[in-house]
Structure formats: C-alpha cells, structure tokens
C-alpha cells in the first residue's frame, strides 16, 4: 500500500452482534492487518452492537498529530446503518465533519461499494468448487433483503449483473433470505447439475452462517457460530440430485483490508459531494 497517511486515522465501523462472535471478527482482523502495514497513524474499529461503541469512538484519536479521521463503514451497501445510525451516533454532519479542535472526519463509502468486491465473490466461488465446470454451474448470490435494508438487495443485484456480463457461469442469479426469490427455493430456481452459493455479506455472523445452511437444507438447525463448525469444509453437499457448494462470507478475505484502505483513499480522489447525508 503506497498511500501513506501519518496524520490520519482509520475508523472501521462494523455491525457486531450480541450473540455471534463471528460478526465482528472480519473488522477486527482487517484492522490488525492495516495496522501492521502502517498506512495510518491509528486504526480502530467500532460497532453498533459491540464494544467499542460508535459513541466510544468519539473519544478516540485525541492526538494533535491526527488531523483527519477516515470513517469506513464495513457494510455491504448503503442503507439504514450508513444513512441513519452511523451519522447519528458519530455526530457526522455530512461527508465532512470538522470537530471543535479542527480535526476533520471524512465519511467514506461502504466497503461493499468497492468495484473489487465482484472479483472477491468470483474468487470465493472458484475456491469452493475447484475444477467444477462453470458452464454447468449456477452461481447464486445471496442477500438479506428486508424492508429495513432495501439497498443491500440493490447491491446484490448489481453484483449479479456484473458477473452475468462476464458470461462465465451458465446462470447467475440473486436469492434472498427474507424475500422472493427465496434461497430456500434454490432447487426450483436452478436447473444446472452444480449450484454454487456465495453469501453477499461481510461476516459469517448471524445471517450468512447460522441461517443460510438451514434454508439450503444442508443443516437441520441453527446451532453454534461459524468458527466452531464445519459446514464450509464439507462441500459439495449432494441434494435434489445436484452438487451444492456453499461459501463463507467475503469480509474475512485478506484482500478486504485493501478494500477498506482504498475506500478511504477514494474519498480524497472522488469529486466531493458535500451535501448533507439523506
């Protein structure tokens, strides 16, 4: 990473969970990796449902040398958290917020908006089904899909369009946990002998890990967290006469650390929209 920011700090904002230890793991791991690269003077995480909270983060970065703080939401898309919760809790006035001491907080785009995310999804799909002919495979990109986070479905659709355009897989489709087309209908939605399922989430927290295997029919009940179980290591799962491959979420990929840093760098290069957050 050539971009050096000795007068800046990076704040990674994650969702976190009160029940699943895997939810914050990607943000913490990426923070550790970025810290080791020494791009920023300081790197910290904060979470909506874990400590440190977003409110705690208001007390970070008090060194006079830190002139700027890049705030990067570790979320898959814009939505309720990036538009309402994060600005409110971090007291952000818009894309740029100047604190009383003159320190400037720069509110960057969520990690999931980065163009390299498409490549990560593809890489995951290839890794879990090595040697499987793409021409005989359907790739299902799974999003959450709820009224509270309508944009995550839009982002998942965008990725499907980008991957379809590459013309690699027999079919590339969206599926959702809570709205049609439902992931639980995967066998009806697809016709190919192989089906590869890649969740479009940052972490193997509640949604991706604990619920999807049950919806796919490869596990009978939601039990422990991802880190304590085996499901990813048992591919393929033979169901409905088809080979089903299930991937873990993309947020733990080492490449994701670069994405977070590049979202910060992109803030400075993008034409600034200084309007207040919606």
């Amino acid at each position: 990473m050539d971009w050096q920011q000795p007068e800046s700090a990076l704040l990674i904002v994650g969702h976190g969970s009160t029940v699943n230890p895997d939810s914050s793991a990607p943000s913490l791991a990426q923070a550790e990796a970025i810290r080791e690269h020494g791009v920023f003077r300081e790197v910290a995480c904060c979470f909506w449902k874990e400590e440190p909270s977003l409110r705690d983060a208001l007390l970070f970065f008090r060194e006079p040398e830190i002139r700027e703080v890049y705030v990067v939401p570790n979320f898959i898309s814009e939505g309720y958290f990036t538009e309402t919760v994060i600005p409110r809790e971090l007291e952000l006035e818009g894309r740029l917020t100047t604190r009383p001491g003159g320190q400037v907080w720069k509110y960057c785009e969520p990690a999931g908006n980065h163009p390299a995310v498409t490549e990560l999804l593809l890489r995951r799909a290839r890794e879990i089904a090595p040697g499987v002919a793409a021409a005989e495979t359907t790739l299902l990109i799974v999003g959450h899909g709820t009224a509270l986070n309508e944009n995550s479905a839009v982002a998942a659709k965008r990725e499907v369009e980008k991957i379809s355009a590459l013309d690699t897989y027999a079919s590339v489709q969206n599926a959702y946990m809570e709205e049609a087309p439902l992931i639980s209908d995967w066998a009806r939605l697809t016709t190919t002998p192989n089906v590869v399922v890649v969740p479009f989430f940052i972490s193997d927290g509640l949604h991706s890990y604990q619920d999807i295997p049950v919806l796919l029919g490869i596990e009978s009940e939601t039990t422990a967290a991802a880190s304590q179980r085996e499901v990813f290591r048992r591919n393929p799962h033979r169901h409905h006469g088809r080979d089903l491959y299930y991937a873990s979420a993309i947020g733990t990929e080492p490449k994701f650390a670069e994405i977070l840093v590049e979202q910060a760098a992109a803030f400075d290069t993008a034409a600034l929209d200084l309007s207040p957050i919606a």
Partner: peptide, 14 residues
C-alpha cells in the same frame, strides 16, 4: 487493553 476492554482507556484519559 483496547481489545480486552474496548474504548475504556480513551474514556479514562478523557
């Protein structure tokens, strides 16, 4: 300490 007790040292310093 930031990992054991996240956010507590900055709060104490403030």
């Amino acid at each position: 300490l930031d990992l054991f007790y996240p956010g507590r040292l900055p709060a104490l310093a403030a």
